[in-house]
Design a protein around this nucleic acid. Structure first.
Lengths: 191, 191
DNA sequence: ATTAGCACTTAATGTAGATTAAGAAAGTTA
DNA sequence: TAACTTTCTTAATCTACATTAAGTGCTAAT
């Protein structure tokens, strides 16, 4: 059972030959917790697909504060889209949070696959569309909802992550300080 | 000169026959200012490309406050991606701000074109990727920058819009009230 | 066992930006 | 031209969240 093929099969169906070609273009590796897969300031060469474990992307602003863009656990893709697409140095760090097995797809192989298997261009188009919609919603939520409401939405959307992710990182994802998050959480429990 | 073909030509090159097929699938219409192209609660049937004029997408939250997601002037695409992709009722309104000429591409025609002209699937994939990157950056900016810094970025990124868009809408886009925006602007001018 | 490091909590104080309200300016329609 | 609507400004007050700082408890390395 190859998780990434299941992931693709949910959107497009590949022939056996296409599956084999695809598998020949990817590489699967184990990583320890705290490994940095990609550093800000460097050019991103791969898309990452998480087979197991937990990964996050984040940036660090001038005041040395981290802001989490994205968490990815089993079955999710993650990367620095800006750097990958532009092949310029990006602002994101990508870090393994829990010991993980990760599929690497290089930019060159990805582009090659678009030519060899047009269905994969469709697959990534749809994947990107879904990601865009999620980002639009998160953006609007950040403009119009309170921190409590954003946390509620986070809990509903990513129930499994709440147990696994340190709470300071959830605070960062929803856009508040760990101190305020702690206070807010205890306030919410009282209700 | 057809603006939308130039727009496509920047990313993929179509043959004359493909251009003609594409043109046969779109519809161009004039709209007056204040026309609502798409209402929240309805299912979005079209992608919109702006030939001339100015359009915005926004939502309205429980407190009857508008939040601008996106402005689109000449050469930009706009739509309710969530509703268009899911074919479910969306949360966005799409409104013409300045008398406009707009290209309509129906969802069915768009999907048909993906089959007939795979290069267009590539075109929209790349368009969506670029949009995603822009949304990721805006999201991170909202998490880590002050209102002044967000306004500075807006000015640099969309210099032509500053003259054309009512300032209360810019305030909404960067995520502050019109009152605070007014105060902030005069404070910034003093420097 | 001891220390060091990190996640979390609590509390005092500070501030960016919201809210409310009122008036001035500017655009729109009759 | 006036009458109406909408945008913008100013100012007082309020609050959600940040900052700073100190302390608690857990894990993990020495």
């Amino acid at each position: 059972m190859v998780l990434i093929l299941d992931n693709i099969a949910k959107i497009v169906s590949l022939t056996e030959a296409e599956k084999e070609l695809f598998l020949s273009k990817i590489e699967t590796q184990p990583f320890k917790a705290k490994t940095i897969l990609h550093n800000a300031g460097e050019i991103c060469k791969h898309s990452y697909f998480v087979n197991s474990g937990l990964v996050r992307s984040f940036n660090i602003n001038d005041n040395i504060v981290e802001h989490v863009l994205h968490f990815a656990c089993e079955g999710w893709w993650i990367g620095d889209m800006y750097s990958l697409l532009s092949q310029k140095p990006g602002n994101l760090f990508i870090e393994v949070m829990e010991e993980a097995e990760i599929v690497l797809l290089s930019k060159e192989n990805q582009e090659q696959l678009y030519f060899d298997i047009p269905k994969l261009e469709r697959f990534f188009r749809i994947l990107t569309e879904n990601s865009l919609v999620a980002h639009q919603e998160r953006l609007m939520d950040n403009l119009s909802l309170s921190a409590e409401e954003r946390f509620d939405k986070f809990c509903k959307r990513y129930p499994t992550l709440i147990q696994r992710v340190p709470q300071k990182q959830i605070a960062s994802y929803i856009g508040v300080t760990p101190e305020f998050f702690s206070k807010m959480k205890s306030r919410m429990l009282k209700k």
